[in-house]
């Protein structure tokens, strides 16, 4: 039974608080104001960065959502394992992203830093594979 998306995001946040506290504070500072509706297969979760914290919720006002990301578990792991690139997934319509370009670039920079941290964290790797 794969881990639910919202549980994954909450565990990811807890892990970053424990192992990468300073980096997490910097990420929050850079991501302030982003409300992302993340869809993984049929599951949905909202990542909301307000003030000094990140909240994972199940819903948000439509007006507040400024980024939407939709992909399947299959596509996510194909990207993580290097079987396809982000742009290949995007142009194959397996990854759908919408939002203001500036906000999307901020999101991309944040995920890039999280993924970069994951390379030295077995905890993050194993947590990600619980999603599968």
């Amino acid at each position: 039974m794969p881990l639910k998306l919202s549980h994954f995001l909450k565990n990811l946040l807890a892990l970053m608080k424990e192992d990468y506290h300073q980096q997490l504070q910097e990420l929050i500072k850079d991501a302030r104001g982003i409300t992302c509706l993340q869809t993984l297969d049929t599951e949905k979760a909202v990542i909301q960065v307000t003030g000094r914290r990140i909240r994972i919720t199940s819903r948000a006002r439509k007006k507040q959502i400024n980024v939407r990301v939709t992909l399947s578990r299959d596509c996510l792991f194909k990207i993580l394992e290097g079987k396809i690139t982000l742009s290949e997934a995007f142009f194959a319509n397996e990854l759908k992203v919408s939002g203001e370009p500036v906000t999307l670039l901020r999101c991309y920079a944040i995920w890039e830093r999280v993924i970069s941290l994951a390379r030295t964290s077995p905890r993050l790797y194993f947590l990600a594979y619980k999603l599968r």
Binding site: L80, G82, T85, S116
Partner: peptide
């Protein structure tokens, strides 16, 4: 080939 796969994500 390159491993780990996320290398392609970080450095396309």
């Amino acid at each position: 080939s390159v491993v780990p796969g996320i290398t392609r994500l970080l450095y396309p």
